[in-house]
Design a protein around this nucleic acid. Sequence first.
DNA 1: TTGTACGCGTTATCAC
DNA 2: GTGATAACGCGTACAA
Lengths: 342, 342
Amino acid sequence: MIKPRSRRGGGRPTIADVARKAGVGAITVSRALREPERVSEDLRRQIQAAVNELGYVPDPNARALASARADVFGVLVPSLTNNVFAEVVRGIYDSLSDGPFRVQLGNTHYSGLEEERLLQVFGPQRPAALIVAGIDQTPTARKLLETAGCPVVQVMETGPDPVDMLVGFSHLDGGRTATEHLIEAGYRRIGFIGARMDPRSQRRLAGYRAAMEAAGLFDARLVTTTPVPSSVTLGRELFRDALAKAPTLDGVFCNNDDIALGVLFECHRAAISVPRTIGIVGFNDLDMMQSAFPSITSIRTYRYEIGRRSVAMALAAIAGKRPEQRVVDLGFELIRRESTAR
Amino acid sequence: MIKPRSRRGGGRPTIADVARKAGVGAITVSRALREPERVSEDLRRQIQAAVNELGYVPDPNARALASARADVFGVLVPSLTNNVFAEVVRGIYDSLSDGPFRVQLGNTHYSGLEEERLLQVFGPQRPAALIVAGIDQTPTARKLLETAGCPVVQVMETGPDPVDMLVGFSHLDGGRTATEHLIEAGYRRIGFIGARMDPRSQRRLAGYRAAMEAAGLFDARLVTTTPVPSSVTLGRELFRDALAKAPTLDGVFCNNDDIALGVLFECHRAAISVPRTIGIVGFNDLDMMQSAFPSITSIRTYRYEIGRRSVAMALAAIAGKRPEQRVVDLGFELIRRESTAR
DNA sequence: TTGTACGCGTTATCAC
DNA sequence: GTGATAACGCGTACAA
C-alpha cells in the first residue's frame, strides 16, 4: 500500500496541486501568478479557477529560496517611539500596503554598531530593498549597504554622497533658518537647547551657530546640550540650565518640538512671558505646536512624504528604472507662530 | 572545461561548504549551529572554525522552507504613530533583539478588515508567534488566529476569552477609576471627551458611565465623542463643543493624553482656571503630563512592559512551556496631579 | 553522536 | 506560449 506522500507542511495546497487540477505544468501556474501577460488567456482563466477552488496561496519562503529574493523591505530607524521616525515608517507602510512587499523593521537605538548588526541580519534574507535613516553609517555598515545587492535609500537627510539613493532635507539649513527667524524677530541672546544630539541634531546646531556667527551673536554659553534622550520633561530641565548659564537669554531654538514644549511649560511655571521675554522655536512642527498656548513657531518637515518617496524610489529601482535624480531634497518650511511674534 | 557549477544564488558559502571543510556531514553542521549540546565538543570546534573561516551565515529562507517555520514574530497594531502602540512595539523589539527572531510589523489602521488581510499575509510565512493588539477581532480574523498553528498573544486588554494568551489591563476599570477620582475631588458636571472611539475607548467610556451613574451624575449631554483620529488640536475643538453643549461643565475625563493636553491649552486660551473651574484627567500618562502646567492627572499604563511580557509568554509557549496563567493583567495606576487638585 | 537520502515549494534554464 | 528538469540551501526521518 502506497503511503499518500505525507506532507511535512500543514497540508496546504501547493503549486503542483493547482497545476494538476488546471491540467498544466507547475511553471505555467507560477508564471500565470507573477506575469499574467505571458500566459494565454485560456490557461490563465483555468489556473485562476483552480487557485480559487483550492485556496492556493504561494509559499513566500519557497519563493524566496528559489528566486534568491524575498519580497521584503528592510527598514532601519534609530527609534520606534520618536514621532518623527514613526511618521516616516508610516509613510513606508502606507506605500507598501498595496503590493506584495512585507516590511521588516529594525530599531538601531541610535547606535552604529546596532545598525551593523541589523544589516548583517537583514542581508542573508536577500531583501528587495533597504531603507535606512541617516547618512552617518559606520564604514562597516556602509560597506554592507553597498554590497547588499538591492536598492538602498537613505532617508531624513540630504547630501552629496549617498550609498545609492537619498531623500530628505538639510538639517543644517533648517537650524539656520530657525535661528535667523529669531534674529529677525529681534531676539539677541538666543540659546540652542538640544537633547540626544544625534548627527541630525548636530547639524541643526551647526546651522544655529552659522546664523549666530553671521550676526555676530554667537556665544558658547548660549548652547545647552545633552546626550540624554529627548522629552518634554528634559526640555524643562535644560531650559532651567540654560537660564542659569545665561540669565539674559531672550530666545531659544530647540532641537525638537518636545524640548520646545518643555521650555514653554517651564516659562508658564516661572511666569516668564512668551514671546515677550523669551522667544521659542521648535523643530518638526508636530500637531501640538499649533495648539499650544501660545502657539509655537517651528520648522515643518515632511516625514510622511519622505517615507512615501523612499518607497517610490526603491520600487522604481526594483523595476529597473534608475531614477534621474538619486538625491531628493524635500525641504522644510518655517511656520511662524505666536511664540516668536514679539 | 567544466563550468564550476554556476550558483544561482550570490555564491555565498552554504552549509555543504562548511561540512566539507570541517570534514563532517551537512546535518552535523546544522545541528552544531542550532543545538550545540547535541554535537561532540571536538566537531563543534572544527565546525565553528570552518564557519568563521568561510564566513558562513545560514540562509533564513532555506531554513524556513525546510523546517516549515520562519523565525519571525508577526505583530499587528492599529497605529504606528500612536505613542501607546509604539511603546508596546518597542517592548517587543527590545525583548527580541537578543535572539534569532525577526519582527514583522503590520499596521491595521484600526480596521478589522485590514487586520484580516494582514493575517492572511502573515499566515503563509509560518511565523513563530503572533502578537496582536486588542480582543475585538472579526470572526474571520479570530479563526485565522486560532488556526495559525503558533502561539498567539493578544495585548493591551484583559478579558475572559483569549484566543490563546492575553496581557494588558482593563480599560473599563481605568475609565471608572479616572472618573471616580474626579467625583471624589468634588467635581460634579464631569464630561467625557473621546476621539477615535476604538474598542478600548468605548470601554473607557463605559467605565466613565458606570462611575457617573453610580454617583447619580450621569447626563448624556456630558459625553462628547468623535470617530476622528485623536490629536491635541482635536482635543481643543472637542472641549469647545463640550462646553457649548454643557456650559456648567466642571471637569473632563479625556480619552487619552493628547486630548487632555488640547483641553488644557484651550483652557489657557479661554482663561479658564485649571483645576479650579475645570478639572482634567487624561489616560496613559505620557511624559508630558507631569511637565504640563498645571501638571495633568492621568491613568498610567504599562505599555512597554506589556510588549515585553507578550514576548516572554510567546517564547515560553514556543519552548513548549504553556504558562500557568494565560491571561495576565498588568493593571494601571491613577497619578494624581495639579489638574484635579481643587 | 553522526550520517544518508530525501523532501520542502518554488523558480531559472533551456528546449520545444 | 508552454513544459521538463534541475537547482535553491536547509531540516526531517530514519538508520547506523
